[in-house]
Design a protein around this nucleic acid. Structure first.
Lengths: 153, 153
DNA sequence: ATAAAAATAGAATTAATATCTAAAATATAA
DNA sequence: TTATATTTTAGATATTAATTCTATTTTTAT
């Protein structure tokens, strides 16, 4: 599917705020409500837009302590890799998980309340997963964001 | 503000899909439309919910190539740090930026089309920012996600 | 136990989405 | 180029959902 300039502008608007009225986007883009409505439907139908979600204030939910945890596996057989990924996804503290090349095998973004919770998470959850070699925790001092944020699904 | 169990369930539902009708959430939670409506308003008003956004398919937007780029600064004075952060935020390829402790100073999540674009990004954009020491790029082989995703704002 | 405050349900209103029809713009084929 | 088909758009209408309102219930504090 080919996105024209208007589509791209519309996607960007929806990435910043998806709850405005169709008329609002229509005014921004100098189009009629129907035109915008149909474009949005098409973006959904063709899978460009995958989800509409609420974003929350980490601090308010006591998940303000972020760590980027680098993980090396011991063995890299397919079975081991798949089992690791399956186990990791069960942990609600893991908000992102990347299988990467280079120094480490995985980089996880962990969100918890504080250092104490992180220690607890490491000892009772993460390190109980088999096949983890060593880990290196990069503690997040601050998250640098632009406003309004454009989130990549 | 204190969140009760129903609030937490509601937040989770909204983090998975914020475009269902109030009635839908009401049915899920065994409450009336008004009850859910007022709870959502309160979550917004008190800043628990910060944003409603559309998530997009990276592949469809040709931003399917993800790199976690680790960066060391040369100097760590306040001015240098602030300037670096300001410059980094101007780059649309940077979808997340964390100031971290440990081995490196910053970890950036970069989204571009392919390796060629990444090279171009590094040469013509990132490394033109002053005060960058060295970088280490962790190329993402795959992103491990649970469905439906609960995204942390 | 009682009063005050907060939360909830259900009805009424307002406003938005979704649908329909026709017109305009764009692309396609002769 | 001209005619035809396809897509996109605008405007009107119908449908559905959000919002507001009032009364009732539940919770909280005294």
């Amino acid at each position: 599917m080919e996105l024209d300039l208007v589509d791209k502008q519309l996607v960007k608007l929806l990435q910043e705020d998806c709850k405005k009225t169709t008329k609002h986007y229509a005014d921004m883009l100098q189009l009629s409500k129907t035109a915008v409505y149909e474009r949005i439907r098409r973006l959904e139908r063709t899978g460009v837009i995958t989800q509409y979600v609420a974003l929350v204030d980490k601090k308010k939910l006591q998940k303000d302590f972020t760590v980027l945890c680098h993980i090396r596996l011991v063995q890299h057989t397919k079975d081991n890799v798949l089992r690791f990924e399956r186990e990791v996804l069960k942990l609600e503290e893991v908000s992102e998980c990347f299988h990467v090349g280079g120094d480490y095998d995985y980089i996880l973004k962990i969100n918890v309340a504080d250092m104490k919770s992180y220690r607890e998470f490491m000892l009772t959850k993460l390190t109980t997963i088999n096949n983890i070699g060593n880990t290196q925790s990069s503690f997040v001092i601050s998250e640098v964001k632009n406003t309004p944020s454009v989130h990549i699904g």
